[in-house]
Design a binder for these strands. Structure first.
Lengths: 104, 104
DNA sequence: TATAGTACCTTGTTAAACAAGATACTGTGT
DNA sequence: ACACAGTATCTTGTTTAACAAGGTACTATA
């Protein structure tokens, strides 16, 4: 998997997951990596950035299956950021596909 | 335009242009930036990398409109790299769209 | 002569993904 | 009691590519 392709997109994918429901980090890693290979060393720092930027809030929740889980909840600011990023991704991927599809 | 989104993709876009015909750097910048904003400071180093990696060869050609143009020609190795990157992009963008489209 | 357009290049900065670790809790098998 | 797998968190240092902001130099027009 080309690591460079993921730059910036993983943030959108995480925000998109959180828009549907609160999630914890390990869960996010596992769900996304079914489709796109990612590592914990990528997601945990990303989640920290999202919190620093005010896009998410966090809370701890006990688990019977291991250590406590840190859940992430999308803030109003995070929803705005999600929608903005989603629009940018659509514009960008359309642009790429136009350029790739242009005939000689 | 989100700079992060472009990571790795610009290489594919340049290889894709060169697969159709030889081009010079300034031309590549102008054609791509109709659709996706890019700067010369990105493309010239990228072209240098492509040459270092053996994906392109170069030759100079006089111009009546300014200084000589450095044309880039895709090598066999470059064609292979193009096709590989194209496949990775298709897989990746499909994956992103699947994840973004998943229902709650 | 000076400005705009063409065409090349470089340096230093920034940002994000990653590998490779560390820590610690729960549950299962021996 | 002990080891191990699975769950769950985190950090440090490295790598890579895009970018801003410059510089150089040629042609053409005013």
């Amino acid at each position: 998997m080309n690591s460079q392709f993921k730059k910036g997109i993983l943030e959108l994918l995480v925000l998109n997951m959180l828009k549907k429901s609160d999630c914890y980090g390990y869960e996010i890693v596992n769900k996304i990596s079914i489709t796109i290979s990612i590592s914990e060393g990528t997601i945990y720092p990303l989640l920290r950035r999202l919190k620093t930027d005010g896009y998410v809030t966090t809370y701890l929740s006990e688990s019977t299956e291991g250590p406590p889980r840190k859940y992430y909840h999308l803030s109003d600011k995070g929803i705005i950021e999600h929608d903005k990023l989603k629009g940018e991704w659509d514009t960008f991927s359309d642009g790429v596909n136009i350029l790739l599809g242009e005939e000689l």
